[in-house]
Amino acid sequence: MDVNVWWLAYPLLGAAVGFFAGLLGVGGGGIMVPMLTSLFLAQGFPQAQVMHLALGTSMAAIVLTSVSSLRAHHRHGAVRWDVVRLITPGILLGTFGGTFIASRVDTVPLAIFFSLFMAYVSAQMLLNIKPKPSRELPGPVGMSAAGLGIGGFSALVAIGGGSLSVPFMSWCNVKMQNAIGTSAAIGLPIAIAGTVGYLVNGWGAPDMPPLTLGFIYLPALVVVAATSMFFAPLGAKLAHRLPVATLKKVFAGVLVLLSAKMLHSLFG
């Protein structure tokens, strides 16, 4: 297929990622990873590396979108910076360490793990699962342990951590508005640590396509990130006019279908 087709596919992907991020307040990894995996396979990239390239490229793209999201929530006073300070050391260590695990797992098992995690995220959305508040936030040691777990899982599936950190903070009696805003702030260290980790682990990997930096494919990163930042404000504006509860259910179905398509591409 002509190379110009991919320059069309990447901005369309970025538009979808940005729109849903603004509309539903979700990170783009659930869309980016399966779509990039399928696109990379179609471009003839080595199957052994496509999942790692998709994860690394998604993490790098999330850096820019997380900055925008953090600023918006901070302006509304929704970020609990005391929580951010306590959890960030564990987040950085867990995310960076998680990239070392991901880089040593073969593409197919990694894709299966990603798909199962997306099924969990989709179930959260479809059933509107929220843990009952039952306790206070733990101390520094407990917060570091929570950060390790959230960061590690986030690195393995290239997400900003919201599907884990929001339920954790809600369980610890943090108001939902603050849990969402604080999760947006936590997404930045997750994205930075994950990007550095995938860059380091992919450095010098064999049979990599041109224009890669570690496990980051630069053309996809630049185009997807640029278009997603443009479409995120549009999604945010429409969030107050469209039936978001219904759209979340549609989005959950889309995540499952994209993951299934990715698995079909790999096994096919």
Rank of each mutant, 00 (worst) to 15 (best):
V50F: 05
V50E: 05
V50Q: 01
V50K: 07
V50R: 06
V50C: 12
V50A: 07
H52P: 05
H52E: 05
L53E: 00
L53I: 10
L53W: 01
A54E: 09
L55Y: 01
L55H: 06
G56L: 00
G56S: 12
G56R: 02
T57Y: 00
T57E: 00
S58H: 05
S58M: 05
S58K: 08
M59T: 08
M59G: 03
M59H: 03
A60T: 04
A61Y: 07
A61R: 01
A61S: 15
A61Q: 06
A61G: 07
I62G: 01
I62N: 03
I62S: 01
V63G: 04
V63E: 04
L64V: 13
T65I: 15
T65Y: 06
T65E: 11
S66G: 03
S66A: 14
V67M: 12
S68Y: 14
S68W: 12
S68T: 14
S69P: 13
S69L: 07
S69K: 08
L70K: 09
L70Q: 05
R71Q: 12
R71K: 11
R71M: 10
R71T: 02
R71E: 04
R71V: 11
A72I: 03
A72W: 13
A72R: 13
A72N: 14
H73C: 09
H73E: 02
H73G: 00
H73S: 08
H74Y: 11
H74R: 09
H74A: 06
R75S: 07
R75H: 13
R75T: 04
H76L: 09
H76Q: 08
H76T: 04
G77R: 06
G77L: 03
A78S: 12
A78E: 12
A78W: 11
V79W: 13
V79K: 06
V79E: 08
V79P: 13
R80W: 12
R80Y: 13
R80E: 14
R80A: 13
W81Q: 12
W81I: 14
D82Y: 05
D82P: 02
D82T: 10
D82H: 05
V83A: 09
V83D: 01
V83I: 15
V84G: 06
R85K: 15
R85A: 14
R85Q: 15
L86E: 10
L86R: 15
L86P: 03
I87D: 09
I87M: 11
T88K: 09
T88E: 02
P89S: 03
G90N: 06
G90S: 10
